[in-house]
Design a protein around this nucleic acid. Structure first.
Lengths: 342, 342
DNA sequence: CTGAAAGCGCTTACAG
DNA sequence: CTGAAAGCGCTTACAG
């Protein structure tokens, strides 16, 4: 397929077609300068008829604004990055800004290359995002000539960053279980090395009582499955009551927990209420029964990060620090019960 | 955080620092023109010391190349788009081209806005990608002033498009089951309205025999679970043998199938071999047992799409048509057995 | 009310 | 071997 290089129209073509100078054409289009109403309208009409669209490269050269930002992520699989990205794009599309997506894995050299490419292209700002809030990207973004905002990843000192409120999310989940009339809560979650895990576990204990069991493992279905065995075997060994509600650290763990319970002949939610974390739709909504879970509102997080980096790019002053956004409970069927309480 | 607008260096600064004219500086950096070796080296050294990086907007204005391409997708969840994107980015990063990601859902108006924004920014080309090969994006890309390549989505007439070879993938899967010594194969898959489903089913029947059952349903765990019930109930009703191998249309269906089998007291792979499609790592690798499945090599597909759009942008001639890329079998444990056969 | 000129940061003939 | 000038497609003082 040979590509037909149809020459693109320039403002000269427009000016000629409208019978004005290029300065007048420019001012007409931008709503600046002073000229007869009739002239302005005519230019606009002709521009529209011709399908004239100004070259953003030329505009950017003058204005020092490219209407472009970069999104840097090390979340290859994209489970967290995609919602963030969707929020960023949604917030910025009507301001005319486009987003470069750069997936850098955990490779500092690759990160460096992408950052330089973005800078060369004069991005107005950069959003760094990742897969956990207590690790930073493998590259230092703190002395760039453009503003940087961090979302769902550890930010540099003195930077602006956004993350969801793990403690509040965990509280939401735990209180919901109690509200369903459950008394013997357990928490099956990920590695204690994660900041989010510690936050959520603390909030869980606060609500469920200091004696409530918290089991740490990997972020996997397999661990959810195994943890149920631990819990039930331990209860039997000590002749204690078995849990009637389990708050899981993510939806994959919840998946394994539900399986293990079914294998033991226990019914969800009749015998045990299960609640997850992440609202990973494609898994949570398809589970049998569909999973009640906590949504971190990553899209909203992306939206705010986008708006913030834009504000910085426009020279506005933004207070540094980490901003924490509330999570939301998504009620499906794995806890039984009624209306979401928030 | 007030952003320190450190002025960026221009070629004037570099030229001054190196004691040459800007034309010489430019030529030294680009390896063009003629000048003393010593001069060229000195300019390069000074550029490096100063950290000078040319403004890509200015370069683009002259060269009519922005070293930027757009990736348009309606795959919101990103399960298919992300690998494609990763391949595109990987193929293009060393040629200095960056990728705009535009998720347009199925909204033609949003698509239009994104396409115009990309065109304004003078992208060198566009890659359209989606979530099924027999549907096109909700926007017409056929008369754009830049080349367009389609990947994993229906292309316009006379365009270049890439998709994976569903028939070959299905053959790979079916033959693998037979090679494991299985004789009574069944195929549980998605809606017959999908081109891929029909392709795969035909290839399955070719290998497994025309009598082998093919059950169509939704792309869900729930359907996989239900389909097993149909299959087993039907076999009992007709006093027939039950399948000893099931080829599933995607990994989610496989997930439901494995669950249903376990609930019936059947062991995978001892009693029944299961094979999936998609190699959706996070699910396939975590299943119990880990799932043997077909990988569509979407990253390779993205890489080729990226290289192709670049070739077109550079004016090379590329034969139109749809190119089909081979799938790869990923052997885990759900079929039992040995080495992958390709 | 409208247009000629300068300039954004580069590259590329062209002249010396 | 090196530099002055023109120009990519725009916008913005400035002059008329």
């Amino acid at each position: 397929m040979l590509h037909e290089r149809k020459e693109r129209l320039t403002i000269h073509d427009l000016a000629a077609a409208a019978g004005v100078s290029i300065s007048t054409a420019s001012k007409a289009l931008n709503g600046t300068g002073r000229m007869g109403m009739e002239t302005r309208e005519r230019v606009k009409r002709v521009a529209h008829e011709l399908g004239f669209r100004p070259n953003a490269l030329a505009k950017g050269l003058l204005s020092k604004r490219s209407f472009t930002i970069g999104l840097l992520t090390n979340d290859t699989y994209g489970r967290f990055t995609l919602p963030v990205m969707a929020g960023v794009a949604e917030a910025l599309v009507d301001r005319g800004v486009s987003v470069f997506l750069c997936a850098i894995e955990d490779d500092p050299a690759l990160g460096q290359i992408h950052v330089e490419a973005m800078l060369d292209k004069q991005v107005d700002g950069i959003i760094a995002t990742g897969k956990r809030v207590d690790r930073s990207l493998p590259i230092d973004l703190s002395n760039l000539p453009v503003p940087v905002v961090y979302a769902f990843t550890e930010g540099a000192a003195g930077s602006v960053s956004f993350r969801s409120d793990d403690a509040q999310g965990a509280r939401l989940a735990s209180e919901w279980l109690i509200r369903q009339g459950r008394h013997r809560l357990a928490h099956i979650t990920g590695p204690e090395s994660f900041f989010s895990v510690r936050e959520r576990a603390a909030a869980f204990r606060f609500v469920a009582g200091g004696e409530a069991p918290v089991l740490h493992g990997t972020w996997s279905e397999g661990w959810g499955h195994a943890a149920v065995a631990h819990l039930w075997d331990a209860a039997v060994a000590r002749a204690q009551d078995v849990p009637d509600a389990i708050f899981c650290g993510n939806d994959q763990i919840a998946r394994g927990v539900v399986d293990a319970l079914r294998e033991r002949g226990l019914k969800v939610p009749q015998d045990v209420s299960i609640i997850g974390f992440d609202n990973w739709e494609i898994v949570a909504a398809q589970m049998r029964p569909p999973l009640t879970t906590v949504d971190m509102e990553l899209k909203e997080l992306g939206r705010q990060a986008g708006l913030t980096v834009l504000a910085l790019a426009e020279g506005q002053v933004v207070e540094p620090g980490v901003r924490t956004l509330p999570c939301r409970l998504v009620v499906r069927e794995s806890c039984g019960g009624g209306e979401p309480h928030s």
